[in-house]
């Protein structure tokens, strides 16, 4: 089935088995391996991507459901070879240990900052509550998101 959707800003129309999962399409057809499969049942959040600007589990979306939608993965945050402000904040705040959860964490945080540029700590923790870090790196992750929000507000001024 030909499925037309926007992937990281580009219109694509691959011929796909519509009953496959979005995470498999991203990793196996488009070689976008940022989104990771942790649990495969919507518990860990490591496969999080944005669909029409909202964080979703790519392991719980069918390829056939993508028609007409817009998908943004962690790879799509890079513009002209430059990391996104949020990615830089993760690097500078040492919010990456083993890195397995990082793409999902960043995409959940991206979804939050697209709606709210001045989130409270409680709002950040709520937005990331569906993302599990096995290194227990939460303190630095929350700091990175706070830092990114601050930088975003400064850029927006």
């Amino acid at each position: 089935m030909i499925i037309k959707f926007v992937l990281n800003g580009e219109l694509v129309s691959p011929d796909l088995d519509p009953s496959r999962r979005l995470i498999d399409i991203l990793r196996e057809n488009f070689f976008l391996t940022g989104a990771k499969e942790g649990c495969g049942e919507g518990e860990c959040g490591s496969c999080t991507v944005l669909m029409d600007g909202l964080p979703v589990h790519s392991c719980l979306v069918l390829a056939g459901q993508l028609e007409g939608h817009e998908v943004l993965t962690v790879e799509g945050l890079v513009q002209n070879g430059e990391l996104d402000l949020l990615q830089n904040a993760f690097v500078e705040n040492n919010a990456v240990h083993c890195g397995f959860c990082t793409p999902g964490m960043i995409m959940s945080a991206k979804g939050l900052l697209m709606k709210n540029q001045d989130p409270s700590e409680a709002e950040i923790r709520e937005a990331l509550s569906g993302n599990i870090c096995r290194c227990s790196d939460y303190r630095q992750i929350v700091m990175a998101v706070k830092d990114a929000a601050k930088r975003l507000r400064e850029v927006s001024l």
Partner: peptide, 27 residues
């Protein structure tokens, strides 16, 4: 019948569908 898939896709990794047809309700 498939909508959000948050209950039908968990645990589906590598397993064949026990169905002949999927009707997507999200469009």
């Amino acid at each position: 019948l498939a909508a959000g898939c948050t209950d039908i896709l968990p645990g589906k990794i590598g397993r064949p569908w026990d169905a002949d047809r999927i009707i997507d309700l999200t469009h």
